[in-house]
Amino acid sequence: MIRKEMNLISPIDAPQAKKPSRDGFGKALVELGEAHPNIWAMTADVSESTRTHWFAEKFPERFVQMGVAEQNLAGMAAGIASCEDSVVFISAYGVFNPGRNWDQVRVSLCYNEANVKLHGSHTGITVGPDGASHQALEDMAITRVLPNMTVIAPADAEEARKATIAAAAWKGPVYIRTCREKMPVFTTALTPFQIGKANVYRDGKDAAIFACGPQVYESLIAAEQLEKEGISCAVVDFHTIKPLDAEAVREWAKKVKLIVSVEEHQIDCGLGGAIAEVLAGEGSGCVLKRHGIKNRFCESGEPFELLKKYGLDAAGIAEFVREARK
């Protein structure tokens, strides 16, 4: 039931190399640096963690180390981006960028329509042992609400690579959300990617799972399991949270009775919230159940322990779908 034209790895649960999605970002940044002399990268004392050090080694004259100062990071990026056709990537942990510097992102970047691309790495609970203060679970909410902002949560390292390259060519501020932990790379160079266009990886008749980030893969595995139980589940990769592919939401609301949103983020104001906003007033009769973090801070633990505890691994997602159908 997985759509062949999406060119995912096959079979979907085959053993494969795992990579953190931040690697895809860092790799793309180097590709961009080589192809375009107007690309800059800046970081706030986390060059290795955010993989901007690969760019720094190759293009020191276009790399800027800002120290632990995310507000100034955003501000100076706006200044550089205002000159000629510069495109500036600013990179730090999601809790700080866009967390610590939200006002600068709002005014210096969004109101200025600055060509600055934010990269928030180490998002979600999979940052693990660092604990709740470092687990970005509100970053999509605070960026999505800003005018002129585009928000992307790639599903794996390869999609993060494509998203980064697409963001460079996209006008205005973009927020790209990546993860620290090594995760399966299940999309390939041939898998399509277009900002604002959801990817339907798997067709289904009974329910549709709309996911972003690492939960796209987990949802695909969950759907395989559900299939065995006689539940036919579509899986759609909503990598772009803003502008949301509202057409795809409406289309699936006509096809299935149940939509489940899955995200490593608070269920309010993130992907699930965005889908709810589209469905409100549609009168489709389709039910939306949102899965993710429910209005709480999480805790320290190994990434996969946390995914299990909060039901965001394949088994947890499958269980959520079963419950939602009751």
Binding site: Q71, N72, G75, I80, C83, D103, S108
Partner: peptide, 23 residues
């Protein structure tokens, strides 16, 4: 530059100056 919230302009100016210097 758009401005209003205090304290943001000097960063923007510094960014422009860094661009001018490096380029």
């Amino acid at each position: 530059n758009s401005s209003g919230p205090l304290g943001q302009g000097l960063s923007i100016a510094a960014g422009m100056a860094l661009f001018a210097k490096r380029k």
